[in-house]
Design a protein around this nucleic acid. Structure first.
Lengths: 123, 123
DNA sequence: CGTTTAGTACTAATTAATTAGTATGCGAAG
DNA sequence: CTTCGCATACTAATTAATTAGTACTAAACG
């Protein structure tokens, strides 16, 4: 069989990114934002948002016309869990080899690193 | 439909990690290494390695008894592609917010950062 | 030489992820 | 009041990922 992903899948994440930008979103809101990036059917977005609600990433509340959705978990926390999952899966839980990759292949300026180091120095 | 993953899936990665540790591996080698971590059938490993060969992550060559597999791409490169994919998907391609996550939640020592910064300073 | 063993090919089943159509209902507009 | 448009629920199809069984083959072993 196939285990359900413990983190957001690619298209779920795409939707959550849109939802996190606003306080509340309807299916139509998300649908229209998503259309700017790629072709998709309204009902597809609806189905995915229903799944996201079942997975506890979204909360649904009844308004007059359409359902109103809002994030059930802060972006920070969800993305953090994705990073942790990635580090576990790919680097057996140790973050520094990932750091090396980032520095060597992702055009991080020395300023970026100093900025980060400064953050780290005064907790 | 569902697009084929452009990077290694969870269990594919698990197998590749074992293969990268050695020059050559048979299905049995990988099967036995994998068994230490979790229950799995021999033929499951075989099927997955066949898939990995089709996806060009493994090269197969005929030996006397069993097929001998070796990595078709260096670990460095494959993991690098996974990091890039992750950064693109989760952080819209920018690495520094990922850095912030790592520093704030992944127990990176100041030494780690200084080590990295040193790498970065003298290219 | 016959039997046990290991390896492969083939087949197939299950579930998650993704996509979208159809039917139905309700409120708005005329 | 009737029609139109939007929203939802339900249904369903497709594909990838994952797992593993069965049958066949060749080699090793006695």
């Amino acid at each position: 069989m196939r285990r359900r992903s413990s983190t957001l899948t690619e298209h779920e994440l795409e939707i959550m990114k849109i939802v996190w930008l606003h306080d509340t979103s309807t299916v139509r809101d998300v649908y229209e934002a998503l259309l700017e990036k790629r072709k998709v059917a309204y009902t597809t977005v609806m189905t995915m948002m229903k799944v996201l609600e079942q997975k506890k990433y979204l909360k649904k509340s009844q308004a007059e016309r359409a359902y109103v959705y809002r994030p059930a978990q802060p972006q920070r926390q969800v993305i953090g869990a994705m990073v942790r999952d990635f580090v576990n899966r790919v680097f057996n839980g140790s973050a520094s080899p990932l750091l090396v990759h980032l520095v060597e292949e992702h055009d991080l300026s020395r300023e970026d690193l100093e900025e980060i180091a400064r953050l780290r120095r005064k907790p």
